[in-house]
């Protein structure tokens, strides 16, 4: 079974995307804290294949708004729901691409999907040790990386 990178390395992968695209860097929170409030919006992206894995991201309203604003380069008040979803999906997509390269996985990326909060996986995620809490300025993010494709 593939060994996943450390929380710091995962933070650097997300930062590689956000730094390149809109000059924001994330840090892993060590020791990891529980941050259930950040699971307001969640996207999961499967990477099926020989070693299936799933990559996901969650954030709260503030984080999603700031990400949307940074990604679309528009003021915060112009960010709507679809822009938040789209930004979170694209950030998950690019992060998954980099993670795949880091793990030398020659498997195709699946499509990212917004998961409703009522979904049992989201409900059960609050204390899931497979989640990594990341922070940048006023954006909190939870990165999901686990074995098996959703």
């Amino acid at each position: 079974m593939i060994e996943f990178p450390t929380a710091e390395k995962l933070a650097s992968l997300v930062s590689n995307v956000t730094q390149t695209m809109f000059n924001i860097s994330f840090q892993a929170i060590i020791p990891q804290e529980s941050a259930p409030h950040l699971i307001w919006r969640t996207v999961l992206l499967p990477i099926p294949g020989k070693d299936p894995i799933t990559v996901g991201l969650s954030s709260d309203l503030q984080g999603c708004t700031k990400l949307g604003s940074a990604m679309f380069q528009v003021p915060l008040e112009s960010v709507d729901q679809s822009m938040m979803d789209d930004s979170l999906c694209e950030l998950a997509n690019m992060t998954a691409g980099l993670l795949k390269s880091t793990l030398a996985l020659d498997q195709a990326l699946g499509l990212p999907k917004i998961i409703p909060n009522a979904d049992p996986r989201v409900a059960a995620a609050t204390n899931d040790p497979r989640l990594t809490l990341l922070r940048a300025r006023e954006i909190g993010l939870i990165l999901w990386v686990f074995h098996g494709a959703v």
């Binding site: 695209m21 990604m71 679309f72 380069q73 679809s82 789209d86 930004s87 694209e90 499509l111």
Partner: peptide, 12 residues
């Protein structure tokens, strides 16, 4: 691109 964000970034 299915991402509106990426299309918007490219355009800009």
């Amino acid at each position: 691109d299915d991402s509106r964000a990426v299309r918007s970034i490219v355009r800009k």
